[in-house]
Amino acid sequence: MQKRALITGLTGQDGSYLAELLLEKGYQVFGLVRRSSSGNLDRISHLSGNVQILSGDLLDQSSLMDVISESQPDEIYNLASQSYVPLSWTQPALTAEYTALGVSRLLESIRRCKKDAKFYQASSSEVFGQPDESPQTERTAFRPRNPYGVAKAYAHWMTINYRQQYNLYTCCGITYTHESPRRGTEFVFRKITSTAAMIKLGLAKELKLGNLEARRDWCYAKDAVYAMWLMLQQEKPDDYIIASGETHSVKDLVECAFNCVGLNWQDYVSVDPAFYRPDESVQLVGSIEKIKTQLDWKPQYSFEQLVELMVEHDLKKLTNTGC
C-alpha cells in the first residue's frame, strides 16, 4: 500500500528536499501551507501536480485536525517554524506561537485524529545554547540563549512527553546548521557563496562579514532530510543529533568559496563588527555517534563539496544558465 506523508513547512528548504525524497520513494505527499504563504511556492514549483497542497496553520488547531483527517498520513514531518534566530529577538511572542505552541497543537491533533501516525519534530542545536561539553550528544543539557532556542526546547520536550504519556511514535532530530542552494541569502553560508559568485562576475565589489573565526557545524540539507526519513523507518522512536560532526570557521568557508571562483578572498572581504553575534564564542558541534551506529547514517557530502556545489549553483543562476 502506498505510504502517505504530511509535511509542514513544505515551501522551505528542508520541506522541498524532503518532498522530493518521499516522492522518489513512492509516497503520496501532502503539504501544509498557510494561505498567506500560498504564493511563495518557488522551492516546490517543480513538484507541481505531484504534491497535494492543504491549507492549514500551526496557530489554528482545528485546521490541523482537518488536514490530518483529510490526508490520513502514515508519517508527519513538522519542519515549519519561525527559524531565523535574529528575528526571534524582535518577534519573540510570534516565534513562541509557531515554533513552540504550534507543536503542541500539532501533537494534540495527532493524538485526536491519527494516533498511529509517526511524527518527526525538527529540533535544533540552538537548544544547547551555551553547552557544557563539546561535541554535544543527545544527553547534553539544554541551555538555550535566544527565543528561538527556548521555543525549540519546549517543542522538543513536548514531543518526548507525548511519546511517553500517550505511546505515540514521535521523534526529534536535533539538526545543526544545514545548507543548500535553496537557503536564503540572509544566512551566512549562502551570503558568502552568492557574493563570491557576484564578485567573480563583476556584480559586486566586496563582502562584509562578522567574526571570521566563528565556527559552525555545517552539512548538506539533502543529507539532513534523509536522516529525518530514516528516523521514522525504525521499529521504535528515538531522538538523534543530525550534524556533520566537525566544525569549520567562517574564514575556512570564505577561503574555500573564493578558491572555487579563482580569487584571493583577502582582496574582497572586510570585517564589520555590526555582523558579530553575541554568542560567537560558543562552539556548537554535534556528535553523530548515535545516529551513525544505530541508523548507519553519515553525511554523504563533505564541507568542501558543499561549498563547491553552492558556488557553482550561484554562478549558474547569476549567468542565467541554470536555476
Rank of each mutant, 00 (worst) to 15 (best):
L6K: 00
T8R: 07
T11R: 11
L18F: 04
E20M: 08
V29L: 10
G31K: 04
R34I: 10
G39F: 14
N40A: 15
R43P: 12
S45P: 08
H46D: 14
N50D: 12
V51D: 07
Q52Y: 11
G56T: 07
D60P: 07
D60A: 15
S62F: 08
L64F: 06
L64G: 01
L64H: 03
L64M: 11
M65Q: 09
V67R: 01
S71E: 03
P73Q: 08
I76T: 02
I76C: 01
Y77D: 01
A80W: 02
S83G: 12
W89R: 14
T95N: 12
A96Y: 13
A96N: 09
S104Q: 11
R105P: 05
L106V: 09
I110D: 00
C113V: 14
Q121W: 04
S124Y: 09
E133Q: 13
E133S: 10
Q136F: 04
Y148L: 11
G149P: 01
V150R: 05
A151Y: 04
A155W: 01
M158C: 07
T170Y: 00
C172L: 07
G173S: 11
P181D: 05
T185Y: 12
F187S: 03
F189G: 03
S194I: 05
E206C: 12
K208F: 15
L209I: 15
N211Q: 09
L212V: 15
R216P: 13
A227H: 10
M228T: 03
L232V: 05
Q233Y: 03
D238V: 05
D239M: 08
S249G: 14
K251H: 13
V254L: 14
C256E: 06
V261K: 07
V261W: 00
W265N: 05
W265V: 14
P273Y: 08
A274K: 06
A274F: 15
E280A: 08
G286W: 06
I288T: 07
K298M: 07
P299W: 15
F303K: 08
L306I: 09
V307Y: 03
M310A: 08
H313M: 07
D314H: 11
L315C: 02
K317E: 15
